[in-house]
C-alpha cells in the first residue's frame, strides 16, 4: 500500500512520467537499442537464428585490411588540414567585422557571410560542382584568363583535399566568426581608449587588447574541435566523393557506410564504428576536461 505522502507525490508528479513516456520510448529505440546492437562487432551476423560470438575476429580483419591504413591517414590528414587552415579564418573575420563602423556595410557583410552555413551539404556540393566545373565553372574561367588550362578539381587526386578545405571554409568561416564577435563586443571599451592614449595603432590594439581578451573563447573552440577530430566532416566527404578520388578522401565514416550498407559487412562496419567511438569518446572527455581546466566550466 502507498502511504499518504507517496499518493500525494503520484497525484502531483505521476502525469509528468506519462508525458515523457514517448520520449523514453524514443530514446530506447533510437539510441539505447543501437548502442546494444553494437555487440554485432563481436559477432557473425546471421539473418536467421542467433548471431555467433566471435570475439575480436572483425577487429583483426579491420586492422589487417589494406584500406585501414589509408582511411586512418585520410581522416587524420583531412582533419589536420582543416584545423590548421580554417581555424584562424573566423577569428580574423571577427576582427575585421569589428573594425567596420558603418552599420549598413557591417550588416551586409554579416548577412552575406552567414548564408552558406544554413545550406545542406547536398546543395553545397551542387554549388561547388558547378563552381569548379572544367567547362563552365568560375575558377576555371579565371585560370583560363591567366592562360592556364582547365583543371577538373572534383576528380583530381591532388586537388580534392584542397577542395574540401576551401568548401568547408566557404560554409563555416563566416558563421563561426559570430562566437568571437560576440566575445569581442563584451570587451570593456575603456581598454581601447587607454591603448589609444598610449599611442597604440589599430593593429597594435587588435594584437594586445582584442586578442588576449578573447583568448579563452579561442582556446575553448579549439579544444572542442579536437574532440571531433576523428569525424573529419562525413557529410561533406560523402557528397564530394566520387570513384576517382576515393583513395585520398575515404575517411572512417565513409568507409563504415560503404562496407556496412553497400557491401553488407555489418560486423566489420560496426567494428570500425566501435574503434572510432572509443577514440572519439576519449577525445571528447579529454577535451571537456581541458576546457574545464582552462575556463573553469566544461560542456557538462
Amino acid at each position: 500500500m502507498l502511504n499518504k505522502k507517496q499518493l500525494k507525490y503520484l497525484r502531483e508528479y505521476g502525469i509528468l512520467y506519462i508525458l515523457i513516456l514517448p520520449v523514453i520510448l524514443f530514446f530506447i529505440v533510437y539510441h539505447i537499442l543501437p548502442i546494444i546492437g553494437m555487440k554485432i562487432a563481436f559477432e557473425d551476423y546471421r539473418i536467421i537464428g542467433d548471431n555467433i560470438f566471435v570475439g575480436l575476429k572483425h577487429f583483426k580483419y579491420l586492422f589487417s585490411s589494406p584500406s585501414f591504413k589509408t582511411i586512418i591517414v585520410n581522416t587524420l590528414t583531412l582533419s589536420f588540414m582543416k584545423m590548421i587552415l580554417i581555424f584562424p579564418i573566423p577569428i580574423m573575420i571577427s576582427f575585421l567585422i569589428n573594425e567596420v563602423k558603418n552599420s549598413k556595410f557591417r550588416q551586409v557583410v554579416q548577412i552575406s557571410l552567414y548564408i552558406p552555413h544554413f545550406l545542406s551539404w547536398v546543395i553545397i556540393a551542387g554549388v561547388w560542382i558547378s563552381f569548379l566545373s572544367p567547362t563552365y565553372g568560375a575558377i576555371n574561367n579565371i585560370i583560363n584568363i591567366f592562360g592556364g588550362t582547365d583543371i577538373d578539381f572534383m576528380t583530381s587526386k591532388s586537388y580534392i583535399r584542397w577542395v574540401l578545405v576551401a568548401s568547408e571554409m566557404w560554409r563555416s568561416a563566416g558563421w563561426d566568426s559570430i562566437l568571437y564577435l560576440a566575445a569581442i563586443l563584451k570587451i570593456d571599451k575603456n581598454l581601447y581608449e587607454a591603448a589609444m592614449l598610449d599611442g597604440a595603432s589599430k593593429l597594435q590594439s587588435a594584437m594586445y587588447v582584442t586578442l588576449p581578451s578573447i583568448k579563452s573563447t579561442i582556446i575553448t573552440v579549439f579544444i572542442l574541435n579536437l574532440g571531433f577530430f576523428m569525424n573529419a566532416g562525413f557529410d561533406q566527404v560523402f557528397n564530394f566523393m566520387n570513384p576517382s578520388v576515393l583513395s585520398v578522401i575515404d575517411i572512417l565514416d565513409t568507409y563504415t557506410y560503404r562496407i556496412g550498407l553497400e557491401t553488407g559487412l555489418y560486423s566489420v562496419a560496426t567494428a570500425t564504428s566501435v574503434f572510432k567511438g572509443v577514440i572519439g569518446f576519449v577525445l571528447i572527455l579529454g577535451a571537456n576536461k581541458l576546457v574545464k581546466k582552462s575556463s573553469g566550466k566544461g560542456l557538462w
Binding site: 530514446f27 537499442l33 548502442i35 564504428s273
Partner: peptide, 15 residues
C-alpha cells in the same frame, strides 16, 4: 550518455 556515444550507422539501420 546518448549525446557522446554514437553507435554508428549499421546498428541504427538494423534496429
Amino acid at each position: 550518455f546518448v549525446m557522446v556515444f554514437e553507435p554508428g550507422i549499421v546498428p541504427e539501420y538494423l534496429v
